[in-house]
Simulated scan of single mutants.
Amino acid sequence: MIRHLVLFKLNEGVDRDDPRVVEGVEMFRALDGKIPEIRSWELGWNFSDRPIAYDFAINSSFEDQAALRRYVEHPEHQAGVTLWREFATWVIADYEF
C-alpha cells in the first residue's frame, strides 16, 4: 500500500472562506468515490496555530505506485490541482506501508 500525504499552505492574504478555497475543498472532498484507485481518503483543516503548521491536509492511500499514478493523472484530480494552484502551495510525501 502507498500512503499519499499532501499539506497545503494558503497564499498570503487568502482565507479559508475565499470562494476559490471553498470550491477547492469541495472538489477534493468529492474525489472519494469518483476515482476508483482511492483506497482511503481523509482531509481537513489544521487547527494548530504553530508558525510551521500548514493549513489543510489530505491523507490518502492507494494499492500501489501504478494506482497512485493513475489517480494523479485523473482529470478530476488535475482539475482540483489547477484550482488550488491559484491560492496555495503544497508539499507531498508518498511512502509504502
Rank of each mutant, 00 (worst) to 15 (best):
F87I: 03
W84E: 00
G80R: 03
V21H: 03
L68C: 08
L43W: 11
F62G: 08
T82A: 08
G13C: 02
A66E: 13
V72C: 11
I52W: 14
M1H: 12
R16D: 09
N46W: 01
W41I: 04
F87N: 03
D55S: 02
D64H: 11
F47Y: 13
W84S: 01
G13M: 06
L83G: 00
D94V: 07
F8H: 05
D15M: 15
E42N: 14
R70W: 05
R16L: 10
A93M: 14
E26V: 10
L10P: 04
E96Q: 13
M1Q: 15
I35M: 09
V21N: 00
D32Q: 14
I58D: 02
Y95N: 07
V6S: 01
F47A: 13
L68T: 07
M1N: 14
D94P: 06
R70T: 11
D49G: 07
D17P: 01
Y71S: 09
D49T: 11
G80Q: 05
V6Y: 01
E23K: 14
L83P: 01
L5Y: 12
I38C: 04
W84F: 02
K9Q: 08
A67V: 01
A67S: 08
R16N: 12
F97N: 10
H77G: 03
E12D: 13
A30Q: 10
V22G: 10
D18C: 07
P75C: 06
F8K: 01
A79F: 02
Y71M: 12
L83M: 02
P75R: 10
V25F: 07
R69L: 15
D94L: 08
